[in-house]
């Protein structure tokens, strides 16, 4: 399979990277950070819990368009899914990185996240860009 610029950098990926919906901090939230030492990119996640559930998630991301979009989609999903369902989705996304094929029919942030991972699958050096935000999310989740 070969992807081109229009597959990897679809309009909605770039739009989400330029104007993230969930960027920012949460006062009093738990936080976690992940960094890519080879390029200097970093993602910090903030999570707010209520009754054991994540009810709000924000991120501060210094990174490429793929990393920005991935972080924003994960933040959106973290506040809406329970942690087990997000972990399952993450495993599915990692599988898409291997196969390069996103499952059909998925909607919303989950569908877009799988689309990002399908687009970047061919570029092994960029896998870390897509995966970095989840490491920051996991750290925050463990911290809380």
């Amino acid at each position: 399979m070969s992807t081109d610029a229009t597959t990897l950098y679809q309009d909605w990926v770039l739009a989400r990277a330029r104007a993230p919906l969930h960027a920012g901090r949460i006062a009093g939230g738990v936080t976690g950070v992940a960094e890519n030492r080879s390029c200097g990119d970093s993602v910090r996640f903030w999570l707010k819990r209520q009754d054991g559930r994540v009810v709000a998630a924000r991120h501060e991301t210094e990174g490429c368009a793929i990393c920005q979009a991935s972080a924003d989609l994960i933040a959106g999903l973290a506040a809406g899914l329970n942690e087990d369902r997000l972990a399952t989705l993450w495993e599915e996304a990692c599988g898409v990185l291997e196969s390069g094929v996103a499952p059909a029919g998925r909607q919303g942030d989950a569908g877009m996240l799988l689309g990002v991972f399908a687009g970047v699958a061919e570029y092994r050096a960029r896998h870390r860009c897509a995966m970095l935000p989840y490491q920051a999310y996991e750290q925050a989740a463990r911290a809380g």
Binding site: A5, A65, I66
Partner: peptide, 12 residues
């Protein structure tokens, strides 16, 4: 634009 995105597009 981020350097990684630039490099990937140049690679294409």
């Amino acid at each position: 634009a981020h350097a990684h995105d630039v490099a990937t597009l140049l690679d294409q």
